[in-house]
């Protein structure tokens, strides 16, 4: 549905987006993530045709963005980071205007505007002036604008920024529902958002693509998958880590050093060694058995699935 091939955007000597390529099939939500200033907005603007690319090409819904801009515009719904609203108009007037420029026939316009307003939860708000709306409601009007022509491709730039938690949850449900029968690209720097919504992510940093895949793949590649944190005490202390490392189930063991500073640091102060264990198969039974055999004290074992947050920091860190 969407194909970006070496998309590049230069502003003078600054390369904002550097040869970014990715493909998105029909349906589902693609999470477009990266730190602020990574080039997310610029990439999205190139996909909508608002910004011409300096290099590479983009094909959206079967049309080249540069060669057939009008066809692409008809098939894409776009919500920029700040909703593009006319403050002076009422919600109804604004949406009727959007319907009109989106080419919805005069006889269908009122019906369609009503449908869309109901969909985004604006029923009964028709006469409210856009300029007087709160951020959450502006975002709804912006979203209504983007889905007016029922586009097969939706591009949403930080749709949840500035919303309160209840509104964020509402927006998430709504996007999930929209994605049932269309392709949605959503950019954000709030990672918990992506974890709940996007099976697939493309991560960019410094204008370059640094990761692309399912959420699990990206997470796994960045952090090496599932880890276990183990707290053990025994004699001699230095033999503990190698013994755990020697277990067949364990891939790698790293002792976690005591954090610096004077404050109380519980397991270390109690004489425990803290190990960071990486293993493909769950090694906890084997570690427990080993502890019993050796007469060590086992205080805790915790399975830790790395969050996207960690993956993100690991990848961004590796880039720099």
């Amino acid at each position: 549905m969407i194909s970006a091939q070496s998309l590049t955007k230069r502003f003078g000597s600054l390369t904002a987006v550097d040869a970014v390529s990715f493909e998105v099939g029909t349906g589902g939500v693609l999470g477009f993530i990266g730190p602020n200033g990574a080039g997310k907005t610029t990439t999205m603007r190139m996909l909508t045709g608002f910004l011409p690319a300096s290099g590479g090409k983009a094909v959206v819904a079967g049309h080249d963005v540069f060669d057939e801009p009008m066809q692409v515009r008809r098939k894409v719904g776009y919500l920029p980071e700040t909703p593009p609203l006319y403050r002076e108009l009422s919600i109804g007037d604004y949406l009727r205007f959007v319907a009109e420029i989106r080419g919805i026939a005069a006889r269908d316009r009122a019906r369609r505007v009503g449908e869309v307003m109901e969909q985004v939860g604006l029923s009964g708000w028709e006469r409210r002036i856009v300029g007087s709306l709160s951020k959450g409601y502006r975002q709804r009007v912006g979203l209504a604008q983007a889905i007016m022509h029922d586009p097969p491709v939706l591009i949403l730039d930080e749709p949840t920024s500035g919303l309160d938690p209840a509104q964020v949850a509402g927006m998430r449900d709504f996007v999930r529902e929209l994605a049932n029968d269309r392709t949605v690209i959503l950019s954000t720097h709030i990672l918990s958002e992506v974890e709940l919504l996007c099976p697939r992510v493309v991560m960019i940093a410094g204008g370059k693509k640094v990761a692309d895949g399912t959420l699990d793949e990206v997470r796994h590649r960045a952090t090496g998958g599932v880890r276990y944190r183990v707290e053990l005490k025994g004699e001699p202390p230095d033999a503990i880590a190698p013994a755990v490392g020697a277990l067949p189930q364990v891939d790698q063991v790293k002792p976690v050093p005591r954090p610096p500073g004077d404050g109380p640091h519980d397991p270390w102060d109690q004489g425990f060694r803290v190990l960071d264990v990486r293993a493909a198969d769950d090694p906890r039974t084997a570690i427990a058995r080993l502890a019993t055999e050796q007469g060590w004290t086992l205080r805790g074992m915790e399975r830790r699935v790395p969050g996207l947050e960690e993956a993100f920091l690991a990848i961004i860190g590796a880039e720099q």
């Binding site: 603007r45 909508t48 045709g49 608002f50 009008m70 515009r73 008809r74 894409v76 776009y78 920029p80 700040t82 909703p83 593009p84 609203l85 006319y86 403050r87 959007v98 420029i101 989106r102 080419g103 604008q145």
Partner: peptide
């Protein structure tokens, strides 16, 4: 300034 030009340039408005 208000970003509505972005709407005009991404809607099928010649």
């Amino acid at each position: 300034r208000s970003g509505t030009l972005e709407l005009m340039m991404t809607a099928p408005v010649p």
